[in-house]
């Protein structure tokens, strides 16, 4: 069985460390918040201007002045703070955020990431993704291993316009976990999802990778 969305999020949560300031992207990365280990202090940064994101509000308690970067209503915690977009991206671009977990369209073996634009389709915009991958200490990408068409997404080179060059440190797909070394061409398969095989991963991957199962 390949990993489900929740299982991918749970695996991504194992990259968290006590005391980390973390930015979670939209989609599967948002689910990572549900898997923060009990007793671990992780502070979630929302790039629209908040540290210490709390859970979704109870019905009837949504506050229009309190949303996350996905425009969902959220709540605050005792230690939360609010700030401007400029301060928010000073945190991100200044290297003060330890970890960014975000979605991807394509990842290349040299660590390039494409996740914002498909030529010929309406482009929604990159939002804060280019700032996050350029500024945050460690970048973890969570995505399906292949496209709906079956086309590989872990490639020798991205064919889509890039979000960042040589920025991906770790890739988690529904088939396994890959460590990358930004700038070099080194990709290592370090974990396999239950019942996924090296042969299946090889057949569904265009990038060159070595096997270093832990």
């Amino acid at each position: 069985m390949a990993w489900s969305r929740d299982e991918m999020a749970a695996r991504a949560a194992r990259e968290l460390k006590d005391g980390f300031y973390v930015n979670l992207g939209i989609g599967i990365p948002t689910l990572v918040a549900n898997f923060i280990p009990r007793g671990m202090t992780v502070t979630l940064q929302s790039e629209n201007g908040m540290l210490g994101m709390g859970p979704f509000p109870y019905p009837g308690e949504a506050d229009p002045d309190l949303i996350n970067a996905g425009k969902q209503t959220i709540t605050e915690l005792a230690g939360s703070s609010y700030f401007s977009s400029a301060d928010s991206f000073a945190m991100i671009r200044g290297g003060h955020v330890a970890l960014s977990i975000l979605g991807g369209m394509q990842v290349a073996q040299n660590g390039d990431l494409a996740n914002w634009m498909v030529p010929g389709k309406m482009v929604k915009g990159m939002g804060g993704a280019m700032d996050l991958v350029a500024g945050v200490g460690r970048v973890v990408v969570v995505m399906d291993h292949v496209e709906k068409s079956g086309a590989p997404k872990l490639l020798e080179r991205c064919s889509l316009p890039l979000t960042g060059v040589g920025v991906v440190d770790l890739l988690i797909t529904d088939l396994g976990v890959f460590e990358l070394e930004g700038g070099s061409e080194t990709v290592s398969l370090t974990e396999l999802a239950p019942d996924a095989t090296i042969e299946e991963v090889a057949a569904k991957t265009q990038a060159r990778f070595s096997i270093a199962l832990k």
Binding site: F56, Y58, I67, T73
Partner: peptide
């Protein structure tokens, strides 16, 4: 003060 995505938990 319209809300784009009202999201709540039970």
């Amino acid at each position: 003060k319209r809300i784009e995505r009202v999201t709540t938990r039970p």
